[in-house]
Design a protein around this nucleic acid. Structure first.
Length: 403
DNA sequence: GTCAATTCACATGAAAGAGACCACGGTCTAGTG
DNA sequence: CTAGACCGTGGTCTCTTTCATGTGAATTGACGA
């Protein structure tokens, strides 16, 4: 019975008209031919990096702005254009783009350099070699012939947070040791105050030039959405007001275009799955819920067990009485959770850090408060909707082997 | 009533350990000629 | 004689623990009006 139904389902699936022409266009990784509302910034980047086409070392550049305001897109765009020209004119210019945020790729000094070396075509073991050794290999490859490198470090704040700023110091100093080649660094950061917390020596050499990417406003986001939607969706499948609502949502959240695009895409998927012929406004709301839930669920399932256990403790406390939780209480419940699921309980010190991590991930809100005579603690509350809460709790129970 | 000292319940830092992963070089073993 | 298996050493990396220090305001208690 079920099988038969499934065949029918797939057949219907095939014949059903998709609302999309090309869904990829709505992915945040897609780069359009024309980048709207970023002409000034792109021009600035081009001005600063321009000299590299004459093999003069351009200034180190530091770019910052909130998430989803087109930093990466603009840089990549400029970089590919430059690479094309360099290739055509036979200029020894190489541009590397590295995203430091991707775990296991470039979030430590060793891995960053190893990644660079690999980009240059030499294989390097993922671990085992002294960092010093990897540096040497890197030097040798780079310095073999006269050439210019531009190193784009995306999400550089993440890198520094994990690996310390010594790495940047080393990188900025590399040039003094290179005989033939030269390296310029282009750092991209979401964190607006990131540079201020850097060691002054690094700060001055890293941000010889700075470009600030301001958030998009609702009108600009609307333009961007319109531009992409026109190519991604079929004609007339988007109902009046949908784009406007998307942009309003995103503008409220500090002008994050990436989010707006995701919202639109997911709304489209929901509409399509439910058999609608048009994307309606209500799908946006559903999409927002879904995105939120998926995000949390994804985090929850990929994070280590201990983190899950802490979260589980917090959630079960939270449902019991709908108020604010303190660290001590959470820790006690957590210990109980560990006992039930056979985990070895961690020290309170560590749990304190885990709570801070959960806060960073945006699953809970944890604010440090002082209760005067009654000590100092974190004030914890859940930052997820109650609709997703039960689902997350269930997932956690499964993951932890509780029933 | 005012004010500084006290005190609580953790937060926050630093350092170092455990255990997983890995490369490298040397030694041992077994198969080959 | 040599290729491959097998060690020991030394390296990175993540997650933790241990020890130490920091912290903000309610409370306390001395003080003076």
């Amino acid at each position: 019975m079920v099988q038969k139904g499934l065949t029918g389902f797939f057949e219907k699936f095939l014949t059903k008209e998709s609302l999309f022409i090309n869904k990829n266009i709505l992915q945040s990784t897609y780069s359009p031919d024309l980048i709207l509302h970023r002409n000034d910034q792109i021009q600035q980047i081009a001005n600063i990096l321009g000299p590299s086409l004459r093999l003069e070392k351009p200034s180190n550049l530091f770019i910052y702005g909130k998430t989803g305001v087109g930093k990466t897109l603009s840089v990549k765009y400029t970089a590919t254009k430059m690479s094309e020209i360099a290739k055509k004119e036979n200029i020894a210019l190489k541009i590397f783009y590295i995203n430091c945020k991707l775990r296991k790729v470039a979030d430590t000094e060793y891995r960053l350099i190893a990644k660079l070396v690999r980009e240059l075509g030499k294989d390097i073991p993922p671990t085992g070699l002294p960092t010093e050794e990897v540096y040497n290999i890197f030097f040798n490859i780079i310095d073999k012939e006269k050439q210019l490198f531009i190193l784009v470090l995306d999400e550089i704040d993440q890198l520094v947070k994990k690996a310390g700023d010594e790495l940047l110091y080393n990188l900025t100093r590399i040039n003094t040791e290179l005989k033939n080649s030269q390296i310029s660094i282009l750092g991209i950061s979401n964190d607006l105050v990131f540079v201020d917390n850097l060691d002054p020596r690094i700060k001055s050499s890293l941000s010889e030039e700075e470009i600030l990417f301001p958030p998009y406003n609702a009108l600009q986001i609307r333009d961007i959405l319109n531009q992409r939607a026109k190519e991604a969706f079929k004609k007339d499948v988007i109902e009046q007001g949908v784009i406007e609502k998307c942009s309003a949502y995103a503008a409220r959240e500090h002008g994050d275009a990436r989010r707006a695009l995701e919202l639109l895409r997911v709304a489209g998927e929901i509409a399509e799955r439910n058999g609608y012929l048009k994307v309606k406004i209500k799908h946006i709301d559903e999409a927002e819920d879904k995105i939120e839930r998926d995000r949390v669920l994804d985090i929850v399932t990929t994070q280590p067990k201990q983190l899950q256990a802490v979260l589980y403790a917090i959630i079960s406390l939270y449902t019991k009485k709908n108020n604010i939780i303190f660290t001590g209480k959470a820790y006690e419940v957590y210990k109980g959770t560990c006992f039930r699921s056979g985990l070895r309980p961690l020290t309170q010190r560590r749990v304190s850090d885990i709570i801070a991590e959960l806060d960073m991930l945006g699953i809970i809100n944890a604010k440090v408060i002082s209760k005067g005579r009654y000590g100092r603690t974190r004030e914890i509350s859940l930052a997820i909707t109650s609709a997703s809460e039960s689902k997350i709790k269930k997932t956690l129970e499964e993951g932890l082997g509780l029933t």
